[in-house]
């Protein structure tokens, strides 16, 4: 039975193929069998995790606590120079220019991306806004968030920074960024489940050296990553603690 590799559902669509190429590269390098299983939503992925169907996961930091503390996963690596940051944007014509201009009862459009939603809500606190005095609508992806803003069906929208900048110029020209997070330390991590513990060092060594190999560097490029760096268990515990404060 091959090990199952999955990726946080918030990966950008243009990098789906990259994760399949990564899977092939990993199998050849490790001489182990891996199978890619992707999920359309965080809930579906969490069900698979709960059923112990996942062995290797590129995880959203929000899910790291559950994976590490409840399911016994251990951190292998984190992407180099790739932190998760959030953007709050509005329609370009809106008469607001800062978070403090926002008033209660406004309509927020968001996705099921948990860390982006958490960071977005956190950045609204300075305007005394929270889930109890706002209207939150969840849609299936960042293009739909933009669409809701352009059609003035929502006042503000939460975006993953990378996803916002992947929007077409035409769309971005009609949107306005109110705030961008600069947190730097929240990022996705690659975690290995209990069944892979015996291969932990081998996998970690392959990953951190991946960018030094021309073929590996090409695979990384297809995934939109620059490389991997070793993630210690304490690094992960610290990020989990930090997420717990948000």
């Amino acid at each position: 039975m091959p090990y199952v590799l999955t990726v946080s559902p918030d990966f950008t669509p243009k990098h789906i193929a990259g994760w399949y190429i990564f899977n092939t590269w990993l199998q050849r390098q490790s001489d182990m069998g891996f199978h890619v299983e992707l999920y359309n939503s965080f809930n579906k992925q969490r069900e698979a995790i709960a059923d112990n169907k996942i062995d290797l996961i590129y995880a959203n930091p929000y899910d790291a606590a559950m994976l590490v503390r409840e399911k016994g996963f251990k951190a292998l690596a984190a992407p180099l120079a790739k932190a998760d940051e959030a953007i709050i944007a509005c329609n370009g014509e809106a008469k607001i220019s800062a978070i403090e201009d926002l008033k209660p009862d406004l309509k927020i459009v968001t996705t099921d991306d948990p860390d982006v939603h958490l960071m977005g809500m956190m950045m609204l606190e300075s305007a005394d806004l929270d889930k109890d005095n706002t209207n939150i609508e969840e849609v299936d992806g960042y293009v739909l968030v933009a669409k809701k803003l352009l059609q003035q069906q929502a006042d503000i929208g939460f975006f993953l920074k990378d996803a916002y900048h992947d929007l077409s110029r035409l769309i971005k020209d009609d949107l306005k960024i109110l705030i961008t997070s600069e947190i730097f330390v929240i990022r996705h991590i690659l975690l290995a489940g209990p069944e892979l513990q015996q291969h932990h060092q081998q996998l970690q060594s392959l990953l951190v050296n991946m960018h030094n190999d021309p073929k590996g560097a090409s695979v990384l490029d297809s995934m939109g990553l620059k490389g991997w760096e070793k993630q210690t268990q304490e690094d992960t515990e610290f990020m989990i603690d930090l997420m717990d404060t948000l």
Partner: peptide, 12 residues
């Protein structure tokens, strides 16, 4: 202990 500080609301 980890301490995380964010921007406070002026009302608070």
């Amino acid at each position: 202990y980890t301490s995380v500080r964010r921007k406070p609301s002026r009302n608070k």
